[in-house]
Structure formats: C-alpha cells, structure tokens
C-alpha cells in the first residue's frame, strides 16, 4: 500500500538547513496498521506530512498503491487514496465552518453526489449522529471534534489513513473511544493506517508493526509482539520502553 525509500526531508536553506528526516524507509502492506514512534523532533510527523504532500522539500521515493507520488502537486486521485487526521482537533477544524460546511466541502471537492445522504452516513459512521450536523466547532468537545475530523478524512473514501497523534490532545476516556472508533473503521472499510504517536501503549494497541525514530532516522522496525516481549534490539528502543512504563523513583 505504501512504500517509502531513502526519504530525506529538510527545512530551510543552507547554512540554516535542518534535516528533519534522514534516509528513512519502510513499507506498509494493504490493510496493515503501522506505527511511527519517537520523541518530539524525531521527524515522525514530518514523514507523515511528506507522504501527504504537505511538505515540498523532500527527496527519495514514496509509492502509494504501487504509484510513485509526484514531488510537489498531488492530483485528485491521490487525495482519494490518502487522507490524514491531525493531532490537535482544536486546530484542525476551521473555527467559522460548521460540521455541515466542513463535510459538504470535502464531499464536493471529491466530486461526490447525494451530499445530504452521505453527510448523514459519515456522521453515523463516526458515532456522532445527525443532530451534530449544524454545530460549529466551539459547540463540540475535543473528542467530538476529532470525530468530525475523522469523518472529513473518510469523506473521500480513502484506502490509506495517516494518523498524526490522533488522541494525544484528548483525555484518556475519550482516547479509548476514538481508538475503538478507528479500529472499527479499519475493520469496516478495510483501511490501511500509518499512525504517529509518542505513546508506545497506544501504538501497541493499534498497530501490527512499528518503526522507532530518533533524530530523523529510523533506528528499528519491529513487530508489536516483539515490543510486548521486550525484544527490542536497540538501546534507544529499550530506553523508550522503560520510560513509557512510568516513573521509577531514583
């Protein structure tokens, strides 16, 4: 479904050039859920944005569904295949657009017809119900906003969903609801996920395999079973696992 090879992403120009991702490579099979784990600044979100076409300054090879993607402009077919859910549901919805406006715009841009019926279905799919159709973001809680954002991503009926820390801005009880929703949607629609998170437990719950990133490089790709068994090969991965287990008094 997704192949990334020798991906380099940088920002700015020399001498102030920052290399955010260095020679990253991984593949994700159709229907698989793949995690990208690392601390802030490790380049995990940057990879996602480069795949989505939100960053122009990259080199290497990105293939989606067997097709190499263009360096800059992506065509409509690309956006029908790949969609993204952002980290902060408070920043990813336009403050002046109602749920109705957000979803109908997404549907129109994808050239869909029968907008009313589709909006109702999308809202049902993400567990909001039709009563939410005409609300504005400020009338929604964080979890409800994230559901709207997921509905927007689903509007295009994509096959690959990029999830950028979709629950890190939410309370744990809401996180559980959203993670369950994402699992259900993957089963129902046969979606492929690439999920970025700093939380190993979340990635362990959601993903089949994961890549551990440190300072722009992928240091280890492993299965979640290996993660659970503590069979990490790299020191850095072991550090992350130890740290995520909580606080041990020094």
């Amino acid at each position: 479904m997704l192949t990334v090879e020798h991906l380099n992403v940088w920002f700015g120009h020399p001498p102030a050039r920052v290399d955010a991702v260095k020679d990253a490579g991984f593949t994700v099979a159709p229907g698989e859920s793949f995690g990208l784990v690392g601390e802030s600044g490790s380049g995990k979100s940057t990879i996602l944005r480069a795949i989505a076409g939100l960053i122009d300054t990259w080199s290497g090879r990105i293939e989606v569904a067997g097709q190499p993607v263009a360096a800059r402009r992506r065509d409509r077919a690309f956006y029908k295949t790949v969609q993204m859910v952002f980290q902060d549901p408070y920043a990813s919805l336009h403050p002046r657009h109602s749920v109705d406006a957000v979803l109908s715009e997404a549907l129109r841009l994808q050239g869909m017809d029968d907008i009313d019926r589709r909006i109702a279905r999308l809202l049902d799919d993400v567990g909001l119900g039709r009563g939410f159709r005409f609300r504005y973001p400020h009338q929604l809680s964080g979890g409800q906003r994230q559901r709207v954002a997921i509905a927007r991503a689903l509007a295009a009926e994509p096959r690959l969903l990029l999830l950028d820390e979709p629950t890190s801005a939410l309370d744990v009880s809401v996180q559980a609801e959203i993670l369950n929703l994402l699992s259900d949607l993957r089963a129902e629609h046969g979606l492929t996920y690439v999920m970025v998170s700093h939380d190993l437990a979340v990635v362990g719950h959601m993903c089949d395999r994961l890549a551990v990133m440190q300072q722009g490089r992928i240091v280890e790709v492993m299965t979640v079973e290996d993660l659970r068994r503590g069979a990490a090969r790299q020191d850095y991965t072991r550090q992350l696992i130890a740290a995520s287990a909580g606080y041990q008094r020094a």
Binding site: V172, Q175, A176, A201, G204, H205, M206, L227, R228, I241
Partner: peptide, 10 residues
C-alpha cells in the same frame, strides 16, 4: 480505558 503494553485487548 488506558491501553496497556503488557495486556493486549481488542
């Protein structure tokens, strides 16, 4: 509601 590494659940 917290996911746990040591106790996987569907």
């Amino acid at each position: 509601s917290l996911p746990r590494l040591d106790a996987p659940q569907d």
